[in-house]
Design a protein around this nucleic acid. Sequence first.
DNA 1: ACGATGCCGGAGCGAATCGCTCCGCAAGTG
DNA 2: CACTTGCGGAGCGATTCGCTCCGGCATCGT
Lengths: 213, 213
Amino acid sequence: MTTRKDTAERNDRALLQAARDVLAEDGAHASVAAIAHRAGVGIGSLYRRYKTKEELFQRLSLMSLEHWNQAAEQGLADPDPWAGLAGFVRGCVEFGQGSLAPVAGIIEVTEQMRARSRRGDELLEELVRRAQGAGVLRVDVTAVDIALLIEQLGRSPVVDQLRKQGREDLLPAATRARRRLIAIALDGLRPGHAPLPEAAPGEELCSGRWSRE
Amino acid sequence: MTTRKDTAERNDRALLQAARDVLAEDGAHASVAAIAHRAGVGIGSLYRRYKTKEELFQRLSLMSLEHWNQAAEQGLADPDPWAGLAGFVRGCVEFGQGSLAPVAGIIEVTEQMRARSRRGDELLEELVRRAQGAGVLRVDVTAVDIALLIEQLGRSPVVDQLRKQGREDLLPAATRARRRLIAIALDGLRPGHAPLPEAAPGEELCSGRWSRE
DNA sequence: ACGATGCCGGAGCGAATCGCTCCGCAAGTG
DNA sequence: CACTTGCGGAGCGATTCGCTCCGGCATCGT
């Protein structure tokens, strides 16, 4: 019955999802017109909900940071240290954290984002420490390595390319193939391998996700 | 003494390298002005060498396909099957094959490209078969998996982001971190791991690199 | 030494696209 | 029925696009 507020909420969700997709395909040049069109709404509707393009992207960033932290906490709640870490990685990759990297260069990073980012770093470090303590994660990988892995695999040029070309039919296969890739990378994180090249001590990349400056 | 032709050749190299870099950062929206500026030459010089933007990108694509094939042949020449495959992967990733994915959606794909792409697929399959036959590569990974891995790791959002922000100082650390990631993924390709999720038989992605249609 | 030559960089072209505003229209309400 | 309300998209000025074309300067011939 309350069809009005109903569609409004659905539109909001559709907009955020569309923004993620377009950002994945077009990077920093993603246009509001493209986002609105993909969400199936008019440009006017987009601007009624978000005053500017930046506001939309800021909201999206906050959401992704929130997802990261929730996924990490969920991973820590898992009694199995390895399953917790692996689930976290899988969750973040499938969420598409990597696709949102370019927005950090467009929007103004608020203190709130930086705070959540710091909290996310802490949670990830705790996940890593716990897994290494249990002997289910090779000891020569760092939290930064994991963050970078998520960033790297969380963006899928092939899938994006296919979607842009409208080859929706090939999409499931590509997604499945990507999932296999994640499994391979996770296997590489298990103990028993030769040590990694120079761990670059001191030279922290501070995960670089939202640091900007 | 022949300073004229000398600078011409250097400019050509600089242009192709710059095109790769800008393409990595800006994706399909890479502009000729940005490419020329990064190469340190004027726009006029770019257009004297390449009639159109498409011609430049076509040349770049051919070059990257050529590099892929040469790296694969070099890998096959290595007597150690694993070292050959790993070296191929490392070479392709560092070359930045993944960054060139978006150009396939801009340029017109010539028959020559398709032919070289097919040859590249064959060479990679041979590399995979040989490594699996020698028992140094897990048997449940396919050539498509490797191609996807190169595509995925061959593009570095973090590094590109840093470069765009002018943080050249952090670049070496980021590059080193990426190399660690490659090592992790390669370790995941070694035998002795649990089987990968559904191998998606039949549903070939045909590596998707330059297929377009 | 000094004009002639030819390559170089970049100002500037029309076209396309950008973020954003504003208004006409259709659906919901009383 | 009049009235309200949220919708889509035409269109605004500004910006950026691919590309052309010309003035200036380093190089070369004599």
